[in-house]
Simulated scan of single mutants.
Amino acid sequence: MTKASCAAEAFKLTDIPNIGKAMAADLVQLGLPTPAHVKTMDPFETYHRLRDGQGQLHDPCVLDTFMAAHEFMNGGPVRPWWDFTEQRKKLLTRAR
């Protein structure tokens, strides 16, 4: 599957780097069905809205993935989701 190299090339969610079929389905379930929605979403809010069947948060790497997709759709370069782990940890530490 070829991924977009810039936001203008992302026509469906799975065109966005780091977003596969399962993550795309999660985004659609949350009311974010297009790349344009990913551009305007708040990655932290989206992560907190995504819960498993028991109401538990998913692994924090999901938040990293949302952060990577959001940055990409706002003109950032293609980066793997794990590039956002350190940033996420710092932001969550400050929020406590």
Rank of each mutant, 00 (worst) to 15 (best):
1 M>F: 10
2 T>M: 13
6 C>L: 08
6 C>Q: 13
7 A>G: 00
7 A>V: 03
8 A>K: 13
9 E>V: 04
10 A>S: 00
11 F>G: 13
14 T>I: 12
15 D>H: 14
16 I>A: 04
16 I>D: 01
16 I>M: 07
17 P>A: 11
20 G>K: 09
21 K>H: 11
22 A>C: 03
22 A>G: 00
22 A>K: 15
23 M>K: 11
23 M>E: 01
23 M>D: 01
24 A>L: 09
24 A>W: 12
24 A>R: 08
26 D>I: 13
27 L>R: 05
27 L>C: 02
27 L>E: 02
27 L>N: 01
29 Q>L: 14
29 Q>K: 15
30 L>R: 06
30 L>C: 05
31 G>H: 10
31 G>E: 09
33 P>R: 10
33 P>M: 11
34 T>R: 14
37 H>S: 05
38 V>R: 04
38 V>S: 03
38 V>W: 08
38 V>T: 01
38 V>Y: 06
40 T>I: 09
42 D>S: 13
43 P>Q: 08
44 F>V: 09
44 F>A: 04
45 E>C: 06
46 T>S: 05
47 Y>I: 04
47 Y>H: 06
48 H>F: 15
49 R>W: 09
52 D>H: 09
52 D>R: 09
53 G>H: 12
53 G>W: 11
54 Q>E: 08
54 Q>M: 06
57 L>R: 10
57 L>D: 00
57 L>Q: 07
64 D>N: 13
64 D>I: 05
66 F>Y: 14
68 A>E: 04
69 A>I: 10
69 A>D: 06
70 H>T: 04
70 H>Y: 11
76 G>Y: 07
77 P>H: 07
78 V>L: 06
80 P>Y: 15
80 P>E: 13
80 P>A: 14
82 W>H: 10
82 W>M: 03
84 F>V: 01
84 F>K: 06
85 T>E: 09
85 T>L: 06
85 T>H: 13
86 E>Y: 13
87 Q>E: 15
88 R>T: 02
88 R>S: 03
90 K>G: 00
91 L>N: 02
91 L>Y: 10
91 L>Q: 12
92 L>W: 13
93 T>M: 14
95 A>T: 00
